[in-house]
Amino acid sequence: MIAAVKLLHVRFTEETHARSRFARELAAARKVDAFCTARVLAADLDGEAPYIASELIEGPSLREIVERDGPLAGEALERLAVGTATALTAIHHAGIAHRDVLARASERIDTLKDLRGKRICLSPGQTTGTMIRERGVDFVDVRGPDPAQCASQVADGSADAMVGDDLLIAGFGARLCDVKVEIAGLRLTTERYGVALRSGDPVACRKINEVITSMYADGTMERLLEEHLGRVGFRFETARPRLETC
C-alpha cells in the first residue's frame, strides 16, 4: 500500500495554534467512513515533525486533465458543474459546517454569553439569531437587507456583530478593507447542508470526487481558503470530507 504523508511545515511546528489545527484535521479525518475516503494509516502530532499518513488514491488532478486535454467545455463542463454540486452535498455530510459570529477585532466575543446586549445584525431568512435567544442569550436586533450590508454595518460600528454560516460570514468579512473583523470561532452548531442537483450521472459524480480528492491532497483547498479567508481568522477544516458514493 502506498501512503500520502502530510507534514506540518517546520516554520509552524513551534506554533500552538498550528498544531491544534493539525490535530483538528486528524480528528475530522478519523470521523469519515473508510469506504468512501482515504483511510488514516498513522499519525504523530507530538513529535518534532508532526505528520498524518493516509492511504494514497491515485488518479490525475484537474490541472493534469486540463493541461493534457485542454479547457473543459460543453457537456464535460456541465458534468463538472453538476458533479461539483454533488461534492458540495457530500462535504457537509461530514459535519464540517458551523454557525458562528463575525465581529470587529476590538470586540471580545469568546463565549456565547459575550453576545448578551450586543447589537447583532440579522438579514431576512436567517435563523441563527433565534437559536441564540433559545439558548438564553438576548441581544439587540439590528436589521440589514442582506449579509453584505450586515458586514458593512459591523465595519462602520452600527452593529457589533453578525451571525450565520461561518463560511458565508467569513467571505463577507474578508471583503472589508478598512477595518479588521474576525470570526469568533464559537462554532455554535455542527450541521449538514444539501444541494439540489440533477440525478443519474455517476460518471460526473466520480470525476468530481476525483477533483475534490485532488484539491485536498495537493493542498489547493487549504491554500485557497487561507488566501481568501485567513485574514478574518476563519478556522477551516483541512481534512478531506466524506464523499458520496456514485
Rank of each mutant, 00 (worst) to 15 (best):
H9F: 03
R11W: 01
E15Y: 01
H17K: 15
A18K: 09
R21E: 01
F22P: 00
A23P: 11
R24A: 04
L26Q: 04
A29Q: 06
A29L: 13
R30V: 01
A34T: 06
A34G: 10
F35C: 10
T37I: 02
T37R: 13
V40Q: 06
D46W: 02
A49K: 13
Y51I: 03
I52W: 01
I52V: 14
I57D: 03
E58S: 15
P60R: 04
P60F: 05
G70I: 05
L72P: 04
L80W: 06
A81K: 03
A90Q: 04
I96H: 09
A97C: 04
R104L: 01
R104Y: 02
R104A: 10
L112F: 04
D114F: 05
K118D: 01
R119V: 00
S123L: 05
S123G: 04
S123C: 10
P124V: 12
Q126A: 12
D138G: 14
Q149S: 12
A151T: 01
S152L: 10
G164N: 14
L167A: 15
D178S: 15
V181L: 15
L186G: 07
R187T: 04
L188H: 05
Y193C: 03
A196K: 05
R198P: 00
G200A: 08
A204Q: 02
T213F: 14
M215T: 02
D218G: 03
R231K: 15
F234Y: 15
A239F: 02
A239D: 02
R240I: 00
P241C: 13
E244P: 01
C246E: 13
C246Q: 05
